[in-house]
Structure formats: structure tokens, C-alpha cells
């Protein structure tokens, strides 16, 4: 159903219409995917083999090269979901709705990776797999927000009708982002405060910081590549549904099976 519900103000849509998006993303995706695999591989090998141990956490610090990038993009992805939802609600841009639908499952997987690796890190260092402190709890809420968005999207027979309620849910949930980020500063938590984003120098030595940034870039490229691929899938699926619906209206009545080609 892409593009046929254009509200007044079509000119804006001309610059990001689904057809153009399919062409651009199709050209970009192989490069993005290759870069993601390459940079992730560099980050993993660097983190596992060449990065030093930590003075207090020994080799468990290597969990950081998975845990922290997953956390960054779990939050970055939700920011993208919130922006897409905002654009979808206010300007009714068809691609914004598609982006939101594509981001949510990817964000949920990244959040799950963040939670699982954090648990594996917490047990040996803190002495607990899980605690209900403000940081851990707010990230768990982020995970449920992603799951809620996915459930809401799938709750409607016509996915286009899910766009508005899902966008409202995503925007309400966006209040959780500053809570996650600043939970370690506002309240006493078991989780330590921020190491990288500080006003003075990062509290991470360059030998540990570099592989972390590389790994973070790799995870970000992977996030972008998978979201692009999923957006393309959603657009094709909607086109398929539109064809089937049009055929149904012509009186055929049956949607499937398709006549043999």
C-alpha cells in the first residue's frame, strides 16, 4: 500500500519515495554488509586476542567488546524507532512507518544480547546474574518496549493500520532512553557510571578504548545493514499484499494459491 495514501504535501515524498529507496538501498546494501562483517571481525579479534586485560576485571573485560556495542545500538536503534515514529505520526511518511517496523526486531535482538552478556559479566564480577537496580531494570523495560512494538505491529491484519498505535507506543517509550542513560547518575546503582561519554577524558585506557570503538562501529554497521534489508522486505511484502488485495476486489475472491507460472 506504499505511496497511494499520500497526504497533501507530496513534494516531500518525492525525495524518499519507496521506488527510489529500493534502488538506493539495493546499491548500498552489499557494501554495508561487507563493511559490517569486516569491521566486526576486526573488533572481535582485537578484543579477544590483542586487547590487554583489565587491572581489576582481568579477562572478563573482553565481554565489554560485545556488551557495550550491543547496548549502544539497542539505545541508538530505539532513538531511530522514535524518530521514525514521530515522522510517521506527524508527516505520515510511508517510509518512516516501514523503518519503524524494520527497526523493532533488530533492536530487540541487540537488547537481548546486551542483557545476556551483561548477566554473564555480572556473575563473575559483581557476584550476581541479575539485580533490580535502575540501570538493569530500565534496559529490561527497553526490551519489553521493543517486544510490545513488534506485537502491536503484528496484531493487525493490515499492517498499515498498526502504524499509528505502534508509533504512539514507541514515542511514549522514548522517555525510557534518558532514564537508561542517566540512571547511573541519578540513583545509586550496582552498575558503574559511564566510562566513555564523560566531560573529561574517557576512563578507558586507549588500548581498551580503540577495540571498543571499532567493535561499536561494526555493530552499528551490522544494525544498519540488517535494518535496510528488513525495510526492503517490508516494502516487497506490502506490494505483494496490495496486488493480492487488488485481485480480490476484482472478484476473484481467493487470494492464494497463485496460478502456476
Amino acid at each position: 500500500m506504499v505511496g497511494n495514501v499520500a497526504p497533501p504535501g507530496r513534494s516531500l515524498h518525492r525525495f524518499a519515495n519507496p521506488g527510489r529507496f529500493m534502488r538506493l538501498s539495493g546499491a548500498l546494501l552489499p557494501w554495508l554488509a561487507a563493511a559490517a562483517v569486516l569491521v566486526c571481525a576486526v573488533g572481535v579479534v582485537w578484543g579477544l586476542v590483542f586487547a590487554p586485560r583489565d587491572w581489576q576485571q582481568g579477562d572478563t573485560v573482553r565481554i565489554m567488546y560485545v556488551h557495550v556495542p550491543a547496548a549502544w545500538w539497542a539505545m541508538g536503534g530505539y532513538l531511530g524507532l522514535a524518530v521514525a515514529s514521530f515522522v510517521s505520526l506527524v508527516w505520515r511518511h510511508p517510509l518512516a512507518d516501514v523503518a519503524a517496523v524494520a527497526i523493532a526486531p533488530v533492536g530487540a535482538v541487540f537488547t537481548a544480547i546486551c542483557l545476556a552478556t551483561g548477566s554473564l559479566w555480572g556473575k563473575p564480577m559483581w557476584g550476581a546474574w541479575w539485580v533490580w537496580d535502575a540501570r538493569l531494570t530500565s534496559v529490561l523495560v527497553l526490551f519489553f518496549l521493543y517486544l510490545g512494538h513488534i506485537a502491536l505491529t503484528n496484531a493487525f491484519d493490515e499492517p498499515e493500520r498498526a502504524a499509528r498505535p505502534a508509533a504512539i507506543l514507541a514515542l511514549i517509550g522514548a522517555i525510557n532512553l534518558p532514564i537508561i542513560k542517566f540512571s547511573v547518575d541519578w540513583w545509586n546503582t550496582l552498575h558503574q557510571p559511564a566510562s566513555v561519554t564523560r566531560f573529561d577524558a574517557p576512563a578507558v585506557h586507549v588500548d581498551i578504548l580503540w577495540p571498543l570503538l571499532i567493535s561499536g562501529l561494526g555493530f552499528g554497521l551490522a544494525f544498519a545493514a540488517i535494518v535496510l534489508l528488513r525495510m526492503r522486505t517490508v516494502l516487497i511484502e506490502r506490494r505483494v499484499r496490495a496486488i493480492l488485495a487488488a485481485r480480490g476486489m476484482e472478484g476473484a475472491g481467493v487470494s492464494r494459491p497463485v496460478p502456476a507460472a
Binding site: P52, R53, D54, W55, Q56, Q57, V61, M64, M125, W126, G127, A128, V131, L190, Q192, P193, A194, S195, A203, V204, H205, D207, I208, L209
Partner: peptide, 17 residues
């Protein structure tokens, strides 16, 4: 009844420490 360790946000190689 339980004791948890809380580490700070500093990461550096043991040699630097």
C-alpha cells in the same frame, strides 16, 4: 545476607595501573 562487589568505571591494563 549477601555481598556484591561494585567496580568503578575505570578500565586500564594492569601494567598502567
Amino acid at each position: 545476607t549477601s555481598v556484591l562487589a561494585r567496580h568503578d568505571e575505570t578500565y586500564m591494563p594492569p601494567e598502567v595501573a
